[in-house]
Design a protein around this nucleic acid. Structure first.
Length: 857
RNA sequence: GCCGGGAUGGCGGAAUCGGUAGACGCAGCGGAUUCAAAAUCCGCCGCUGGUAACAGUGUGGGGGUUCGAGUCCCCCUCCCGGCACCA
């Protein structure tokens, strides 16, 4: 056996062997149970970052563990290859996004392979390939014909200088990232998936996902936001016509407290009122400035202006003023709200600011209402009772809502309604590097889906965008076509799809990436649902909700039979790191990589020019903030096993991990020590693993620890999915093994048993060294997960903690089978307790079997 | 702003069901080995007082429940993620 641990050599040999014998190729024909282990595929941004290493190592640990436990495992890998960064790179370097993307894929594939993941590379796919997006386009046309996809206007960020639509990320403090121009809201036609039609099922389906983290299910449920309320109307007259202003509220019990209504700036009633009111028109124009992002809308100053219009309260007949509010969202409900300043905090602030009346209609016993400041109880649904509300006085929330809804219904002015916060999914992007939307616009036939036999609509790959609008519009060859329906000249749609569409079904395509007769074949149902999905917590809502939705769309198309795509979900915490930047005169920020920054006398300095940079806080590693740490240096210096070990050891998978280089050395040291201990043992000559019999005390104790460790490691990996503690347990075991003395056959056989088990237990985490060691320990044998020997776990005597009034005062040793009485007596007799008792009897004695005794005096 | 999560030694973290707070590792300190260094091995390592035994104190802050709270409940602070066109 080689004396020194040589990671480069071991890893190269192992990886070459895995590749040539195709050990990780997943086959459908198998009598073992299937285990589909999937990690979220990467965006090919250039090179791997720490988040990737963490994500794919977690997935690989679970995949390899299940292989060792006898499952038929499939672990695929691919590329989420469309997206904005490729266009940004094109603008910066003049390289076509396609060429940039393919080069990145090649580089990152090499990096992934160097990490030794048990991936079936024969199933690799890239979403930017026509043989992939072809089927996405095919499904689009099916859904368009079914009405699941429809067209409507939607608001986007418009850069008036660059004449282009901006992503929310490209809007910085209300201005375009390149032009610096004030961003405007603009309505343009877009295609939408009717996800709201599936809202109820997406919500109730969460109950059938016991393998998902509670926090993710809670986030999704809140995002879908089902609320039962009342939709009702305020009647008004416009040019002598009877009209209605519709609103939705979950607080119909406060309807008697309405003192005004607020509508969105885009609301038709506002547009009409602005026609002969220049001040209002100016205010509406102001509202239309800034980004469309909800976070911006919610944090900006609440502003409003009276339209001068009045509507009639449906129950009291009072005249109610209508205001335009910059905080009212046109996309939620009817784009208008009733305002009850006394019982809604936002309305309260708005009414105070603009001196609008506040009318209390809810009371809570023991509390008194004042107009001075908002108090929490004003909005209390549970304890509140109606007052100042005429016939509704005294009713609680539920009774009041029922009575008011019933009265509105009689007047034909409203009814109870279930409302969702979830909005339909707009998928049109005015960008080049994405999957073309397969629609042809014909003057006579309208929007015509491209027939299946003319798919895919291929995206030209030689385009270099320049940042001003979608370059596809300038491609006559792409745009000009014949109408598939009437054959007359027509125009091809140049918008592309949201990249979330590609990532909503890739997990299914992995089952049959080579199938060219359709989107999916029967292999999909063999592998689906995914048994274990692993990915970043940042995808808790959007990606995971869209994928669940898409699965149901595919089910309803007869493509899959399951209802949910992912059985078990592990949401890995983010790898975060410091950010550093400099700001130029025009407010543009340049970000510096932490690797180039050093701290000098408490000031962050960029090492390339020796000038200070501004510390921007600790954030998710990202391309845009340039705070990614390159794992390549780690792999080059210590090998893949050390990189894998360290990322698994540094923190539990679900927690966010603040990156620091320190600590890697320790992981590497452990592997070197492991190698040396195995080397010394193997050089001592062959010996069979322990077969039982009478062991010396030290060997017996070690063997008990070995089997405790086997138990713990299995539980940590399989149930707890916490690998840092599994590694710590193996480290403890190895520390104990190092202390075990004796060269007799029995002791050596326990050492053999321990080392064999350690190699297998570590194999999911550090597969290269584990295989190499196992081959030395047990030449020619195949790894199998060790079995816990119950007899080895038995202990004769145990130690119990003794507390006095809950404070630790000593220990006692008792027989493992000792009764409560014997334990109590032993504790009371102990020196530590006698000292505190001072001869008096204890008030109470609490015995926790196997743990402690607490004497209360 | 809204929704979700987090905070434990100098640092990463452990404590799985309310029962020994600080496992394991990093850094540091002391020693062995070495001509010397690296590597390796052994020991110490929350804070305060004490030579020590030991005592007190300690899990972001404040309050509560309990024989017993890092863990449960209430309030607060700070940090992270998401907010529908970053992926």
């Amino acid at each position: 056996m080689q004396e020194k641990y040589l990671p480069t050599e071991i890893e190269r040999t192992a990886q070459a062997q895995w590749a040539s014998s195709q050990v990780y190729r997943a086959v459908e024909a198998s009598d073992r149970p299937k285990y589909y282990c999937l990690s979220m595929f990467p965006y090919p941004s250039g090179k791997l970052h720490m988040g990737h290493v963490r994500n794919y190592t977690i997935g690989d640990v679970l995949a390899r563990y299940h292989t060792l436990r006898g499952f038929n495992v499939m672990q695929p890998m691919g590329w989420d290859a469309f997206g904005l960064p490729a266009e940004n790179a094109a603008i910066a370097n003049g390289v076509p996004p396609a060429a940039w993307t393919y080069a990145n894929i090649d580089h990152m594939r090499t990096q992934l392979q160097a990490l030794g993941f048990a991936v079936d590379w024969s199933r690799e796919l890239a979403t930017c390939r026509p043989d992939y997006y072809r089927w996405e386009q095919w499904l689009f046309t099916r859904l368009f014909e079914k009405g699941v996809i429809y067209k409507k206007l939607a608001t986007v960020n418009w850069d008036p200088v660059d004449q282009t639509v901006l992503a929310n990320e490209q809007v910085i403090d209300g201005r375009g990232w390149r032009s610096g121009a004030l961003v405007e809201k603009r309505d343009i036609p877009m295609y939408f998936f009717r996800i709201t039609q599936y809202a109820d099922e997406l919500l109730s389906g969460l109950d059938n996902l016991p393998g998902w983290p509670e926090r993710v299910k809670t986030m999704q449920a809140n995002w879908i936001g089902k609320s039962v309320g009342v939709r009702f109307a305020f009647p008004y007259k416009s040019n002598g016509q009877d009209e209605k202003l519709w609103v939705f509220t979950t607080r119909a019990d406060t309807i008697m407290g309405v003192t005004f209504c607020a509508v969105a700036a885009e609301h038709p009633i506002a547009t009409r009122a602005a026609q002969d009111n220049p001040a209002l028109a100016a205010f509406i124009a102001e509202c239309k400035q800034g980004s469309v992002a909800e976070a911006d809308m919610a944090t900006m100053e609440k502003k409003g202006m009276d339209t001068g219009l009045k509507v009639t309260h449906p129950l009291t007949g009072e005249s109610i003023p209508v205001w335009v509010g910059n905080y009212v969202l046109m996309s939620y409900g009817d784009g208008a709200v009733m305002a009850v300043p006394a019982h809604d905090e936002r309305d309260f602030g708005f009414a105070q600011k603009y001196d609008l009346p506040i009318k209390q209609v809810i009371t809570v016993e023991g509390e008194s209402f004042t107009l001075d400041a908002w108090q929490e109880w004003y909005g209390d649904k549970q304890r509140g009772r109606c007052i100042n509300s005429g016939k509704y006085d005294g009713l609680d929330y539920a009774a009041a809502v029922d009575a008011i809804a019933a009265d509105l219904e009689v007047l034909n002015l409203g009814e109870k309604k279930t409302q969702f916060r979830l909005r339909d999914w707009g998928i049109s992007r005015q960008r080049y590097w994405g999957c073309p939307i397969p629609i042809v616009h014909c003057d006579s036939c309208g929007d015509v889906p491209v027939p299946a036999d003319q798919l895919p609509v291929v995206l030209p790959e030689d385009v270099v965008p320049d940042g001003s609008g979608n370059p596809l519009n300038k491609r006559a060859l792409f745009v000009n076509c014949d109408c598939p329906s009437c054959g007359e000249p027509a125009r091809r749609e140049t918008d592309t799809m949201d990249t979330f569409v590609e990532s909503s079904w890739y997990y299914a395509r992995y089952a049959c990436p080579d199938f060219d007769g359709g989107m999916l074949d029967s292999r999909a149902n063999q592998w689906l649902p995914v048994d274990q999905y692993v990915g970043g917590i940042e995808h808790a809502i959007l990606h995971l909700l869209y994928a669940r939705f898409f699965h149901k769309l595919m089910r309803d198309e007869g493509l899959v039979t399951s209802d949910e795509p992912f059985l078990n979900l592990l949401t890995q915490g983010m790898v975060i790191a410091d950010t550093y930047y400099r700001e130029s005169a025009d407010g543009k920020k340049t970000w510096f990589n932490p690797a180039d920054v050093t701290l000098r006398d408490g000031v962050a300095i960029c090492m390339t020019d020796d000038l200070p940079v501004i510390v921007g806080g600790i954030e998710k590693m990202s391309k845009s903030k340039n705070n990614g740490v390159d794992p390549q240096a780690l792999i080059d210096r210590y090998g893949a096993d050390t990189a894998r070990l360290f990322t698994m050891f540094a923190a539990p998978p679900e927690q966010s991990l603040e990156w620091s280089d320190a600590g890697v050395e320790g992981g590497h040291r452990f592997l070197k020590r492991l190698w040396r201990q195995a080397y010394e043992h193997v050089e001592g000559g062959e010996v069979a693993a322990c077969v039982g019999g009478e062991l010396p005390e030290a060997a017996k104790t070690l063997r008990r620890q070995l089997h405790q460790t086997i138990q713990k490691v299995g539980d940590d990996i399989e149930r707890r999915k916490q690998f840092n503690t599994a590694i710590a347990a193996v480290m403890e075991l190895m520390n104990a093994l190092a202390r075990l003395e004796g060269d007799d056959v029995i002791t050596r056989s326990v050492r053999q048993e321990t080392l064999e088990a350690v190699a297998v237990m570590l194999a999911p985490i550090v597969p290269h060294i584990a295989e190499a060691l196992y081959a030395e320990l047990k030449p020619g044998a195949t790894m199998v997960w060790p079995v816990v020997n119950e007899a080895a776990l038995v202990q004769d005597e145990i130690e119990l903690m003794v507390q006095v009034n809950g404070k630790l005062r000593g220990q006692i040793r008792v027989a493992a089978a000792a009764s409560r009485e014997i334990i109590e007596a032993a504790a009371l007799e102990s020196e530590a307790v006698q000292k505190y008792l001072e001869g008096k009897p204890p008030k109470k004695v609490v015995v926790v079997p196997g743990r402690l005794v607490n004497i209360v005096i």
